[in-house]
């Protein structure tokens, strides 16, 4: 077995993060680190999509990563159309896959 430590983003910058906490995606618990955006926490868990488009229902996730493209919209704690790449993850955040414009469950 190789003695070389695996290269990771955290190893590259010698990160010693504060303890992880839990968020959820569609009820599934996932870990998040303090300061990570929701999108970053989802990427870290191998999740790349958390929205389905209005027209053809295709999956989407973070694309531009800086808040310009709005592809990463998610429903967070019941509020739709939140940019997951900008919003910091907080303990207990419930992310739900956003279907279309995100208002389907609100009877509006």
């Amino acid at each position: 077995m190789s003695r070389r430590r695996r290269r990771t983003p955290a190893a590259l910058v010698r990160a010693r993060p504060e303890p992880a906490f839990e968020i959820s995606l569609d009820g599934r618990p996932l870990p998040a680190l303090p300061g990570q955006s929701l999108a970053a926490a989802l990427w870290a868990a191998g999740v790349l999509s958390w929205r389905r488009t209005r027209g053809s229902g295709r999956p989407r996730g973070a694309f531009c990563g800086i808040g310009s493209c709005y592809d990463c919209l998610a429903t967070v704690n019941g509020t739709p159309n939140q940019r997951a790449c900008l919003i910091p993850a907080r303990p207990g955040d419930a992310v739900t896959t956003q279907e279309g414009h995100g208002h389907a469950g609100l009877a509006v």
């Binding site: 983003p9 990570q36 790349l48 990563g65």
Partner: peptide
């Protein structure tokens, strides 16, 4: 190009720099 896993190059860089994650 709309398939999940296709990300902006600058976006991948931004997510790495800020969140220490890779797509």
């Amino acid at each position: 190009w709309t398939l999940p896993g296709v990300v902006g190059a600058a976006g991948a860089q931004a997510m790495l720099k800020a969140g220490l994650v890779l797509p």
